[in-house]
């Protein structure tokens, strides 16, 4: 298997899907000549031309709405929104239209489109450019929401999303673009709606997704090496549909769970996972489910403040220790 970056995996998959299916085309701000704000579409305008790699005016609602129309006719638009923050301008098109057309017209017309967009903080982009808004979309029936954490999943989930007949929010993370990992070669598709146990363990379950899944894996490896704590790491990969079974099975084994997400705490993924666990593994729990998330403030621009507001490995380790202490695991 080749070791490549998350960025490269996305780029290669877009290219492979453009080659594979003539109905696939890309649309968004700055994706052609400029090759994308984060260079995911590098070289694609030159290779596929302006019909299939379209630079748009600055009108998020415009190009998302147009993509819906094209998808209704059977094309497979892959839209890039510069950052998830600007998807808010296209919210009506996504929530009221993309998510509902298939149901509201009796299943007669699908909307097979993908919206690729990065979220995440830590890049000093200030409050309106650093949000994690995936739960907004995960809340909406009719949408699928995937959040790859690794280059392999970036590939497998992007291929699955483009081939899927429903609208998919494909949520990337700015801080993951340069991360590297092994990626299977050839045609590789990850089923949407399946969580991934990134590391097995018996002592405690850490549930996460996107960038925080990578942080969780790192923490779990260190805890095992340094302290002999065997944590299991569950990467949700897909927020809707959500693989509750994998989460519940893991907690039935470990009896303890911590959720870490980059998003704000209230009404977040952690809340949904905690509810899932108490519904499916209540009798197995040795301690309350704990959540690690961002401070509930607009993310500051100043570097030290931004770092202070975001959840990190240190906070996760602390909460894992507290959870284990509560069950006297550490003696």
């Amino acid at each position: 298997m080749a070791v490549i970056t998350y960025r490269q995996a996305l780029h290669d998959t877009l290219r492979a899907e453009l080659l594979r299916d003539p109905n696939v085309f890309l649309m968004g701000e700055e994706i052609g000549v400029f090759e994308g704000s984060y260079k995911i579409t590098a070289g694609l305008l030159a290779e596929f031309g302006p019909e299939r790699v379209r630079d748009t005016p600055i009108s998020e609602e415009g190009f998302v709405g147009a993509a819906i129309g094209a998808a209704m006719l059977g094309l497979r638009p892959v839209v890039e929104i510069m950052t998830i923050n600007f998807s808010i301008l296209a919210m009506d098109q996504i929530v009221n239209h993309a998510a509902k057309i298939h149901a509201m017209f009796g299943g007669q017309c699908a909307v097979p489109m993908v919206i690729r967009t990065p979220g995440g903080g830590g890049q000093q982009l200030a409050a309106t450019h650093s949000q994690n808004l995936e739960v907004w979309y995960a809340h909406v029936p009719g949408l699928k929401v995937v959040t790859p954490a690794t280059p392999a999943d970036a590939k497998g989930l992007l291929a699955a999303s483009i081939r899927d007949d429903d609208p998919v929010m494909f949520i990337e993370n700015l801080a993951l673009y340069n991360t590297k990992g092994e990626v299977p070669e050839g045609d590789y598709v990850t089923e949407i709606g399946t969580a991934n146990v990134m590391k097995e363990g018996e002592d405690i379950t850490i549930v996460s997704y996107s960038r925080m899944a990578a942080v969780a894996l790192d923490v779990a490896r260190r805890l095992e090496e340094d302290e002999g704590i065997r944590a299991e790491v569950v990467d949700l990969r897909s927020l809707r549909p959500l693989d509750r079974t994998t989460v519940v099975e893991s907690v039935r084994k470990t009896g303890k769970a911590v959720v870490i997400e980059e998003d704000w705490l209230s009404y977040g993924v952690g809340a949904e996972i905690a509810a899932t666990i108490q519904e499916g593994a209540f009798d197995y729990l040795d301690a309350p489910v704990r959540r690690v998330a961002a401070a509930e403030v607009p993310l500051p621009y100043a570097k030290p403040l931004e770092l202070a507001a975001l959840p990190d490995a240190t906070a996760l380790v602390k909460v894992i220790h507290e959870t284990l202490d509560a069950t006297r695991f550490r003696g």
């Binding site: 401070a295 403030v297 607009p298 500051p300 100043a302 030290p304 403040l305 202070a308």
Partner: peptide
Amino acid sequence: PDPDPLAMFDHVYADGSPMLDAERRSY
């Protein structure tokens, strides 16, 4: 000077917020 980390809680609401006060204390 670099700002104080606790400053991030200061202006989220015009009239302050008990929830944020609690969060500031625990931070």
